[in-house]
């Protein structure tokens, strides 16, 4: 453009070439170095965080508080938080039920991109927790029937589901008195287990953040972002 600029620029160009020879190996190694640096930054800074795809969630056929059949396929397309309990429980249950209540109350805090979020409480005491008993419990807990479902079923099927499928321990010590490990499980819309919280009082903020991460991934997985998400899974970019 400017003749003066051209004059001043021209003598500089050869000087630069003398200092750093832009030969092919230099370009090759600097590109490789930049790629490695970029990868390192991606893995350490983790601009995209994902939840691990732990394993396929278990299949089941159970009965809800209205006496109707509910299967794992009924929750396809929804993000489901499971917990396991029995209604006559004294020790850790008020806490675990409180967690479910808090999650239900705070669901509107997260943008789930139109993906329905469901809560499912499974009772492993079908002898006492009849559908009618589950209905009263749901009413006293102010469970929103659109969101929070209570399930139970045959003892053998419950053992296979909770013990075999979710690897959660429970045992009837005396009639109507159970010992169990409190646990919460997050299963995504494809039926894949994404998070386990094996404690009576998990951090509700963490549960909500995990729900947000899963729904964000579903919403953002388009085009090039697909590869970015695959890379995030490959390099285990899990939230801390």
């Amino acid at each position: 453009m400017n003749p003066l600029g051209n004059l001043t620029a021209k003598p500089e160009a050869p000087k630069l070439q003398r200092k750093v020879r832009l030969s092919f190996p230099v370009i090759l190694f600097s590109v490789l170095g930049l790629l490695t640096l970029g990868l390192f930054a991606f893995v350490t800074i983790r601009p995209i965080q994902v939840l691990p795809r732990i394993t396929l969630g278990p299949g089941y056929f159970l009965t809800d508080a209205n006496g109707e059949a509910v299967t794992n396929e009924d929750f396809r397309g929804s993000l489901v938080l499971y917990n396991f309990t029995y209604l006559n429980c004294q020790a850790p249950c008020p806490e675990t039920t409180g967690v479910m209540q808090e999650v239900q109350a705070r669901l509107d805090e997260i943008d789930t991109a139109g993906i329905p979020v469901r809560l499912v409480t499974i009772s492993f005491d079908p002898a006492r927790d009849t559908p009618a008993a589950l209905q009263t419990a749901a009413a006293t807990l102010h469970a929103d029937p659109e969101v929070w479902t209570f399930l139970t079923g045959a003892p053998e099927r419950l053992k296979w589901l909770i013990g075999g499928g979710f690897s959660v321990f429970y045992e009837e010590r005396q009639p109507g008195e159970f010992r169990f490990d409190p646990a919460f499980m997050l299963v995504d819309g494809a039926g894949i287990l994404r998070a386990e919280y094996r404690t009576a009082a998990p951090d509700v903020d963490r549960i909500l953040r995990d729900m947000r991460l899963v729904t964000e991934e579903v919403r953002n997985r388009q085009g090039v972002a697909n590869y970015a998400y695959d890379a995030a899974h490959l390099f285990l970019c899990y939230p801390r």
């Binding site: 278990p58 299949g59 056929f61 299967t71 794992n72 396929e73 053998e156 296979w160 589901l161 499928g165």
Partner: peptide, 12 residues
């Protein structure tokens, strides 16, 4: 049930 549950399959 031992097979179906772990494969995410139900039957009734």
């Amino acid at each position: 049930l031992g097979v179906t549950t772990q494969l995410g399959i139900f039957y009734q």
